[in-house]
Each structure stands twice: as C-alpha cells, then as structure tokens.
Design a binder for these strands. Sequence first.
RNA 1: GGCCCGUUCGUCUAACGGUUCAGGACGACAGGUUCUCAACCUGUAAGUGGGGGUUCGAUUCCCCCACGGGUCACCA
Length: 527
Amino acid sequence: MTVRTRFAPSPTGYLHIGGVRTALFNWLFARKHGGQFILRIDDTDQGRNQPEALQPILDGFKWLGLDWDEGAEVGGPYGPYYQSQRLDRYQAAVKTLLDKGLAYWDYATPEETKAEMQAAEKVKLPKIYSRRWMAESAADRARFEAEGRTGSVKIKMPREGVCKFYDHVRKDVEVAWAGEQDIVIQRSDGTVTYNLANVVDDYDMKITHVIRAEEHLSNTPRQIFMLEGLGYPRPEYAHVPFVAEPGSKNKLSKRKIAKYLENNEFKKVYDHAKAIADRIGVCTAPEAFNPVLVDFYKQVGYLPAAVLNYLVLLGWATADNREEFTLAQMVNEFSLDRVVQNPASLDVKKLFAFQARYMQALPVAEKVELATPFLTRAGLPAEREFVARVVEAAGPRMTVAGDILDYDYLFLSDEQIAFDAAVATKHLTAAYKGAPAVPALKDALAKLRAVVASAEPFAHDTLKAATEALATTEGAKAGPLSQVLRVAATGREVGFSAYDTLAVLGRDRCLARIDRALRSLDHDAHS
RNA sequence: GGCCCGUUCGUCUAACGGUUCAGGACGACAGGUUCUCAACCUGUAAGUGGGGGUUCGAUUCCCCCACGGGUCACCA
C-alpha cells in the first residue's frame, strides 16, 4: 500500500510556522516511504475564508521546497482538492449517516444549546447534549419547523463502550464513548463542519496516515465513529505536539505577537527583520509581518534549509541528538516513533542561530544571488562584481540576505555620505590618547588622505601597514585612527574591517569622500 | 466542569531499568582574540515538578498529587 499523507490548511491567513512543522512531518513521512503528499484546502467555513490568503500559503510551501503531488494548483486523480467544491460528497455522507440512524436532525437553537452546556458545567457533569430537540421522525421535523426552528444535523454518538485506537506518537489511546458529544456535522445553512468533511476527504483521497497536531487527538474518536459508520477503513494516526509560544506551553498564535514582543530575544529577531523590511517596503501591519508566519522569514532573506532544519527539531530528534540535517537526511532518518510527546516552544533565537550557520556555509556567489534583490528593492545599484566584494568582506556578519542593506553606505553615491566631525573627533582623540597633543581633525584627515592616496596596491594589507606606519610616526594608535578613516569614508562607526571597507570602495571613491569631509570642515570653519 | 494529553537546564532535546558528577545545542555569563561590529576559541552557571511504591538499582515502570495544555458550545 502506498503511503499517502496530507496537509490541509485553511486559507484564513498566512502560513503558520506550527502548521509548517506539521506539514513537514507529513511531507517527510511520505517521501521517506516513497508515497504521496497531498495539499488539500480546507475552506468549508466560507465566512472566514479569504481567497487572496491562499497564494501566500502556496508560495510558502514552494519557497521551503515542500512539493505536493496532488492538491491545490496541481490537481490529481482524487479531486477536487478544495473542500468548498466537495459539498455533494459531504451531503451524501450526511445522508448515509442519517439513513443508518447514526446522525439525526436537531432543532435546538444556539441559545438553548449554550444554556444546556452552561448548566452542565455548573453541576460538574460532562457536557453531553440531552437530545431534547432531536427529531426522530418526519413528523417531529415538521413540528419543530412549524415552530419556526431550523434544523442542523448532529452525529448520534454511542452512550456506552470505549473507543480504542493506536497513535504512533501517543501509543494506545482509549476513550469512553459516553463522554463524546453529539457534534453538529451539517449546519443549519446546509454546509458541513470540519470533522465530517475531514473524514470524507481523507477517505476519498486515500489518505493512509493522518499526521496532525495534538489538538485533534480529541476529535479522533468522533471521526472514527463517523468513518466506521460510513464503512471506511481507518487510517493510521499520529498526533504530534503543537508548537507552543515562546516561553510558555500555550498554543502559538499569530494574534499574540504583541505579547511575544515583550520577550527580549523574540524582539531582537523581530527588530532585525523589521529594519530590513522597512528598507524594502514590505512591512505592513504587524499582523502580516510576524515571526509566527513563514512569510516573515522569506521576506527578509532567511534560507529555507535553515528554517526547515530548525523546524524538524521542534518535536523530533534522532537517538544521537544530532542537529544538522539537510532535507535529504531528514527524509532518510525521519520516523514518527521518535516524535516527542510534549509541546515545543518556538525559539526564534535558535532559528536565527541555524540561519547564521547555514548562511556562513553558503558560497559567496549564492549570497550575491540572494542579496541582489534586496539592494534593487531598496533602490540601490547592484553591480554583480561589487556586490560580491561586499559580501565577501562582510563574511559572517551577513546572517540573512537582507543584511546586505547594513552596507548601504557602500552602494550610495559619495554625495549621499554625511560626514560627522564630532564622531571623527571622538576617534581621533582616542587615537592620540597618551600622546602629548591631539592634532586638528583637518590635519589628521589630510595625513590619512595621503595614506589612501599612496597605498599600493590599494588593498587591506597595504592600507593597514601604511596606517600603522603613520600611527607610529605620530605616536598614535592605529586602531582608532582607522576608525577616523572609516567615518570619513562611510559616515559610520561600525562595519567590517575599516581597511577592507576602503579596499572595497576603491581608491577614487575613498578620496572623493575624504575630500568631501575635508571640504565640510572648511565650510564649518568659514561659517 | 467532564474527558484526553503532557511534565529532563531559561529554550530545543539525548540517555536498552544499570557505561553518566544526567550528555549536546541555542541563549546567558566570564575570559581570549581584535581597528568598530560580528565571527572565532576557551571556560562557567543552569535540569529530571512533588510524594509514594515496584526493583539490588529508577530520568526511565506503576499510583496519587500539583502544574501546564488540548478538547467539548453551528471554527478548522
């Protein structure tokens, strides 16, 4: 039998990181066993669906490299793969259940149902519907409808016995049928609910392994009841722990972003990405730009391999507790039996650490490829050779592709660089600390200009040697002196090595910028 | 509230019932390196929720408790 797994997102928002983790497990299991992975769209709840919210989900999967054999966009032999197009199948299933006496028409109003549930809770009894408004015959239905009630269809759960099933993560599970509620399977408007649709779809699409989040464990008995009533075979189950929010075991929710931002480490990762997003203009509301959503990582230039590697370890580990996995290795080594039983909190800082490691290992040419679109979107020139030089010099400082924008001052025109005399003076003072006197900034700059003008070849080592030589004759320290040079050439105090910075910029641009700095000093002196 | 699931450093986790001061990773902290910022190197602190059993021996098996979570009301 071919293994077939599925992931069924609702197009109600962007691709949730917890959802991706579950999808990844499904994908991995299917690939490992040479089976198929299906991407079905659970859009039964028309009210909450936004068609425009499906595309980012598909894009997210494509970006991660999680391909699907059947489903949205690609179709397949067991379609349609959109629940909204499968109503006839569901209605047929509801009819079968009704005909077999395993479901019934019910005429309780939402208020009446609510009242019963609240009463049950008050006296500490299980919340089981009394079936007071159950219609057992056509006459009953007519009577209720004459009262102006509209009916829904509820599943008629057994009131005795136990439901047993095996779960690849939870092992043997046993639940008393008596505790299971008669849930609505067809709403009064004729649409069906998740549990019914899910059972029908999994059967129609020949799903063999239902791998889903733990929150569905409690849904399993009633799904088993329905599928057996329908005469379907049972799939195998694996309920994986959900992904919890940072620092707690609550289920991760994209709506609680404001709360997560109170966490310092979470905020650091967010702010880093936000700065990039602001530069390229993707940033909209926090609702859409959110570390809980995969799109966040895609937007600022994380590597899919790093995200996937982090995610696979959220609830799964090998016996040797290794941490680095390529996608192929994951496929090879994945096993449901080694899925952890407890929820794992999302730790974006650790994800960031994976990203840093993966990025460091990436060849310069590939980094250039990834960084270029960020420059372009920020309106900066992105000449290939030059970008490569910057990327090379930045080395491990570039953690995500968008970090190239940290070096925007290398791409801006010389006129756009603002020289800050006060900052330069600060470093100059530091350079001459201990020396008899600190020279005027203008004089120091002139001497540094000579270093830049004469270094041959114009490269890190010669610039360093010349600056050090100057420092020696001046009785100053070369380090802070190079900072003066950096400030003059870039307008910044931080970046990669000052000498590398000059070398990347090239002699002409360095001189032009230093000259501009000198002129600004003249200007200040005259005004 | 009923039912169900879970509980190893702050976080992710490893540990055939016995090679263990309970191991690794991220983070934190300290030091080294250093022209700034990173990176890198070295080191330190940090954990089996509590109580009972079973056993020669429990992180591991059983029970109770506590805590956390999920689910049940026309969301998926």
